[in-house]
Simulated assay, not measured.
Amino acid sequence: MLLCMGWTQQGFQMQSGSPAPLDWPLLEWHTVFDSRDAEETRAFYKTMAFRFDLAVRDAVQLDACVSGIYLPGIYIGRAQYGAPVALGPSRVRNDYWVHLPIKGTWEAAVGHDTFVCNSRLAIVSSPTREVMLHCNGGAARLSLSVTSEALKRQLTVLLGQPPLKPLEFVPTMNLANGYGGRFANMLTSAVIEFGRGCAVRWSPTTLMDFSEFVLTSLLLYHPHNYSDALRRSAQMITPRDIRRVVDYLETHLDSPLTVADLVAASQVAGRTLFQHFRDFTGKSPMHYLRNLRFAKVRDALLHAEPEESVTVIAMACGFTHMSRFALEYRHRFGERPS
């Protein structure tokens, strides 16, 4: 399993199983739009290049609430309407969406196919196919939007060359088990962090790491028209290739690192790099990097002068979230950092 969420001692982690039911208002402190007026709601979605349909007889039930957060290359949001509505992106939008039901059921028309979405099935939409969501009055959903540019850059890194055709995902994601359940847990864990205000303290580096993790996991684990090409791109690499990556990690402990950085250092395609790095070391590159950072900060603290600051030493070793650093340090070494 690659990188990782749910925050754990290893960083972002994919947790197994279906996502836990979420019955409280998520992201309530990150409201994007809130209205009971049908025309106001329709106008809002028009500015966002979405079609929004609501029957006149249902307008009195409308209670639209959209909350969300914007991260590098992605958006995570929650939406509910209180009334039966239909909405979908216009052709001018070129982003990708993952829609996870968190309350009630709804239907998704993707091209010529229709799917009933519930706690066991999510929709993954691509701009190459027309999509329309039909939500009942009691439904709520958690959605992830990813820009085409961000996905194309990450796919290029993983393939080792630019894709020639538009990326198109399989339109359904099974939430009951496997990758879908882990992905849903990861996303809901992130939303809970933001809802509680915890993620406000995430550094720009951590936000970029999380966004890259989302992009990479989607491309490696959810089927799409380049999945076979990613599997075929696997090649034999040598311990010398892995050594180059390890050397690069050891000399950049205080820097924000991306998959593209490691690919450039190793001169090996991203998917192959992650697969063989784990074979050689037993860990993903980012897990290995975290262990290196803790080894360095442990040594620095043991040899620090009394007047030296724990925070300054930790930040020099690449740690930016001090409360999480302190918790994990104590978990690893049985004492507080001092």
Rank of each mutant, 00 (worst) to 15 (best):
L3R: 01
G11L: 01
S16P: 15
A20R: 08
P21R: 02
D23F: 01
W24R: 06
P25F: 00
S35G: 05
R36L: 01
T41N: 11
F44R: 02
K46Y: 07
T47F: 01
M48P: 00
A49S: 15
A49H: 15
F52N: 11
Q61M: 13
L62F: 05
L62N: 07
D63C: 08
A64P: 03
V66A: 11
S67M: 11
L71S: 11
P72I: 10
G73C: 07
Y75R: 12
G77L: 03
Y81A: 05
P84Q: 02
A86V: 02
R91G: 07
R93M: 09
N94A: 13
Y96W: 07
Y96F: 15
T105H: 14
W106N: 09
T114R: 15
T114M: 03
F115W: 13
V116G: 10
V116K: 06
L121T: 04
A122Q: 06
S125D: 09
R129G: 06
L133F: 12
C135A: 13
C135E: 13
G138T: 09
G138L: 04
A139G: 09
L142K: 03
L142T: 01
S143C: 11
S148D: 14
Q154R: 13
V157T: 15
L158T: 07
L159S: 10
P162F: 05
L167Q: 06
E168W: 00
L175D: 10
G178M: 02
G181C: 10
F183E: 10
T188I: 09
T188L: 14
V191W: 04
P204S: 05
P204A: 05
T206A: 09
L207S: 08
F213L: 12
L215K: 11
S217K: 06
H224D: 00
H224Y: 00
A229W: 04
L230Q: 08
R231H: 08
A234H: 13
T238N: 10
T238I: 03
D241W: 08
I242E: 09
R244Q: 11
H252D: 00
D254G: 13
P256D: 07
L257H: 02
V259A: 15
V259D: 12
V259C: 13
A264R: 14
Q267H: 12
A269W: 01
L273M: 11
F277S: 10
R278P: 01
K283V: 01
H287L: 04
R290H: 05
N291M: 05
N291V: 07
L301Y: 04
E305Q: 12
E305K: 14
E307I: 00
E308L: 00
A314Y: 02
R324I: 04
F325P: 09
A326F: 00
A326S: 14
E328H: 12
Y329S: 03
R330W: 03
H331C: 03
R332I: 02
G334D: 07
E335A: 09
R336H: 08
